[in-house]
Design a protein around this nucleic acid. Structure first.
Lengths: 229, 229, 229, 229
DNA sequence: TATGAATGAGCGTTCATTCAT
DNA sequence: GATGAATGAACGCTCATTCAT
């Protein structure tokens, strides 16, 4: 539980790097096909065509394998955001958010079973979501994106907004990709994620009087101004 | 994995009912303090001051204990929504959403460690999110709420909206209560959840041209009409 | 393992006797339908419509139940033999053996599953087949039968013969009733048991020179005289 | 109950083979000394001087251990018959049967306690006596033996005769070796087994009128013709 | 370095038996 | 007597990890 999930040794040789990759692939496959409960290091090693001993040469323990997979996933997400940031400089925020959501969804749809497991099994869950480096990078990139489009955003606190947007994206993309509710196409769900993100950003925020407010007049929806000229 | 998490026998005598409660309390405590990996039935029984045999008299297996805890939690959430629905008939949607969010947050803050574990460990996760009865009720209630306030909502598909709103609430409330980002007060996080929900509902949706549409001109934000009047 | 399998108290009252019978019936049924591994006292009690406590009022432990069932079976066999002995005074040995075999077979065919289990599970197997009273009675009756027909028997030692005949009957009747080889009708198997018993009895016995005998001439079958004029 | 009792992996290395042997020896010893009820995998492993893990590396479950012991025993019996078949071509059927009986008895007398347990505990007893390969071989060999000596046999159906002979041998050898009745020497019991087998084979069979035949006149023994010229 | 046989603590679960009611 | 909730020792089995080869 309190293990350091770092690769035991950084593979300097090519062969080692290849072995590490193979093991990780095997871990993903076993996790996806057998679920967490059915996953064990011996099976992973066997699937990878490697001996258990070798596995432990590169990963100090089972948790490290899962942590590495999380790492990998975080990096993929990071790449997704980076890709969007670095292309089409003229795009609107909505377009960019849509592009990110679409790419995320796509990534999750490649191995839904694996992601279903990864979503639940976070080996170091004692430590309060000790953000991985990639995780911090993701935050930074997203914050940068919001900064770029600050004119299109009603939310004032961009740091908080970054956090909220990432949470919304994560949960809704997971929902859409991994446990899609019956009756809705992936396209509509995808659109819903974008709606949720953009809707939040378009909201000034903090407008609701907390507790004990004299009951507002009527059913008028939250008033909203266009966020940009 | 494919177990039926139904109590083995419904306790008829008072003594039995008490035993069941005690066991569930103990499960929550052990889960919260030891995490899922550190939780085992013998420890639960010991903590409950009960023999393992008694535990298995009422719960067919370990998973059933967790499932029961989920059930309990779902029912709490259901009560929260019901409570809001049944009070203050003149309230706006925003106020009601705010009330629900606040109550949810409050509920999660009572036993954050337990909820942290419950969030990840869903013993029946093979079954494609086979919504518990309470879960379905929650959906129904929320849909009813949106129906009541349909005039304040821009999203057309109220079924989809219900799903999205519940997902957003769940993920952001969890985030706010169980792994709050440093630097933000609970109040602000709470407000952010409301913003996200209301922002989404206020968005007409579907406005984004999908793939390969003639690239939009410029950085115009997602257009948005006032949802009502 | 070293338990005394005697009923804890002899049921003097009618109600008690009935309870005991019910429990024994239930034991038989559970044993037959669930096999030994699937049989447990709680299930037996439930099947009998009686509480476990009551069960233990009449049987000191699980083994006692099985022992009682064996007892019951032994008594049935005893009755079978008695019945044959007490009828048709003019019958030949062959006819009587045939009648016994037939009755035994019939008895086993009523509850083959039960007998299959009973055959294997003899609770006191440590004690070297401590013959039950009924068992001893059976031996006595069979010896008496052979005595009556001594003129038709070639085997000299009637005590040994009794033992052998009972063993043959038991094993072949079990085989015929409980695991009949494919391709043979019950009738033929039944006949085979009679053949085996009568064949043995018709053999003078001890005719084979032990080890180192000067090799006999040829393939002549074991010569045999008619056993009786 | 419905387990496949195949070794989990066939040990390729010498060390492995040795481990397997040791485990089987230990199983036999524990079974013989503690009985089936007193036998458990941890004890077996301990007795073998091996860890439970190792035991389960080669045997999928407890039953597989017993099944392997049965296998071993079946093979021994097979060897016994083969040995007799391949020696002394001039021997009569009686001599050969005597030799087989003697060898079987001898084999059982080496580890009577073990065989006592094995006789009762046949882990695969659900499967309708799915004869092991060795078991089938035994049948084939015995049938071949009867074929060779068909001139010395009165029973017409040699397939049925094979079955009956094997059952008789098995039950009487067990009786003689494992629970010898007081008062008889092993030699006499051995002779009795031979008598039973040869007596059965010398009987034409089927001579008994079935049910309700006009009652035969008197105590004439089962008539019997000489089986061969 | 790689292998894979071996380890053994530990877990989920059962069930014969007891005893307060 | 009868009940059935409670007990808890014990067992089958797993699997992360080690280490001799």
């Amino acid at each position: 539980m309190t293990d350091i999930p770092q690769p035991r040794k950084s593979p300097r040789q090519l062969r080692s790097q290849h072995t590490v990759d193979t093991i990780l692939q095997a871990t993903a496959r076993v996790l996806a096909t057998h679920g967490y409960a059915g996953t064990n290091t011996n099976l992973i090693a066997e699937t990878a065509g490697v001996s258990v001993g070798s596995l432990y040469q590169y990963f100090p323990n089972k948790n490290a394998l899962i942590a590495a997979l999380h790492q990998r996933h975080d990096n993929q997400m990071l790449d997704v955001i980076d890709g969007v940031l670095n292309s089409n400089p003229a795009a609107t925020l909505t377009e960019r958010v849509a592009a990110i959501v679409q790419a995320m969804l796509h990534a999750h749809l490649l191995e839904p079973a694996l992601h279903r497991v990864l979503e639940r099994e976070f080996p170091l869950f004692d430590t309060p979501r000790e953000h991985s480096l990639a995780d911090q990078d993701i935050h930074r990139r997203m914050r940068h994106l919001l900064e770029l489009h600050r004119a299109e955003i009603a939310q004032q606190d961009r740091d908080l907004a970054t956090y909220v947007v990432l949470r919304i994206m994560e949960s809704l993309v997971h929902a859409a990709a991994l446990e899609p509710p019956a009756g809705f196409s992936t396209e509509r769900l995808e659109q819903a994620v974008v709606d949720a993100v953009m809707g939040y950003l378009a909201t000034p925020g903090g407008a609701v009087p907390r507790k004990r407010a004299s009951a507002p007049k009527a059913g008028k929806p939250a008033t909203r101004r266009k966020t940009a000229g």
